[in-house]
Design a binder for these strands. Structure first.
Lengths: 189, 189
DNA sequence: AGATGGCTGTACCGAACGGTACAGCCATCC
DNA sequence: GGATGGCTGTACCGTTCGGTACAGCCATCT
């Protein structure tokens, strides 16, 4: 029993890499068997729904990770500066070891968006909500997430990994400055 | 003779829509024949290199458009405010009628990135260079392009088309403000 | 030791894939 | 009114696709 869940979880980790590198359409079952080391029989035992089932498991796993490591800290107690810093640290280390690809962004661009529309929208709107909770500014939240996502694309497109943390750092100080200004408004406002 | 080029150009336009909606891997020759109204024979007459040749023609066409309508105005004479405004107007109207998908971003995320790496990198680095020329600030250029690209993803993911122009408008005023500050630095700096 | 059942590899399926070959249509030009 | 050649539809190629069927291995439990 424990063996089952452990190996399925391992498979999900390997699947995440494959889907990240090749996208949904571009991921073939052959590539999956190579990456996971599992035969088709095992795959369809763990994921009766086939490829879509596998992708959904990966999206769920990633979504849970962000919920736990990114969104919750944003809603925690403490100064906004600290909560924002926690988010940026988590996000930067996450994508640095994930080939600078956000799975949800990749799925949002292709035709697979319709198939996974609900879970994709949930991922981003939860992120926006948590950031709005931390900063009190919905527009700032949108600008921040957009900058991060765009920086991932730029870093991939220019094949310049350092561009992501550099852009993220500027977005962080901008967000912290504006959140601070909002918490302690100047007299003129 | 004129007939040839005209029909190939028409095919490229139809191809752009197909690749935008389905990505490179997700675009089948069957879908292409349906969208363009051309049989495989005609397609392989116009594009001897097959699917990759078709995609490359589309990327070239889009790249030329941006070079002409976006990058050149950024390098033109006149106040930075005006050049930036021209860029944002062109970009917003462009993507609004293109399903809010940047073809180069979509290709940068998938496995097709390697195949088209050079032309993808050229598209973004030319954009950054032109923006740096207009604002004198490389980091501002990166932040601006990243915000625009991220806003496209957010708008697609949340299925909220209005999010793109709203985010773009904030990025525009931010860029104009900072470019203005750079041109007329305050005494403290 | 024997039975159970979760798990696995392999062979295979029909469909669709990207790509090729080629006969012929039909507007142009002499 | 031929002859030319750009262009087109169609049949077909080998390969790979996602998915299924199933026999059997082997750790567990009695």
């Amino acid at each position: 029993m424990a063996r089952v869940q452990a190996e399925r979880a391992d498979a999900v980790l390997a699947l995440a890499t494959t889907f990240r590198l090749h996208g949904y359409e571009g991921t073939s079952l052959t590539a999956i068997t190579a990456q996971t080391g599992l035969g088709k029989g095992s795959l369809y035992h763990f994921f009766p729904g086939g490829k879509e089932d596998m992708a959904r498991a990966v999206l769920d796993e990633v979504g849970d990770w962000f919920r736990r490591e990114v969104y919750e800290p944003l809603r925690a107690d403490g100064p906004a500066d600290q909560r924002l810093a926690a988010m940026f640290t988590a996000v930067e280390t996450y994508f640095a070891s994930r080939h600078l690809v956000c799975l949800f962004a990749a799925f949002a661009l292709g035709q697979e968006r319709d198939r996974f529309a609900a879970v994709i929208a949930a991922y981003f709107s939860e992120w926006l909500d948590a950031l709005e909770t931390a900063t009190g500014d919905r527009e700032l939240a949108a600008d921040t997430v957009a900058t991060l996502q765009g920086a991932l694309i730029l870093a991939r497109a220019l094949n310049d990994p350092a561009l992501f943390p550099a852009t993220a750092a500027r977005a962080q100080s901008r967000a912290q400055t504006r959140a601070r200004a909002r918490a302690h408004p100047p007299l003129s406002s």
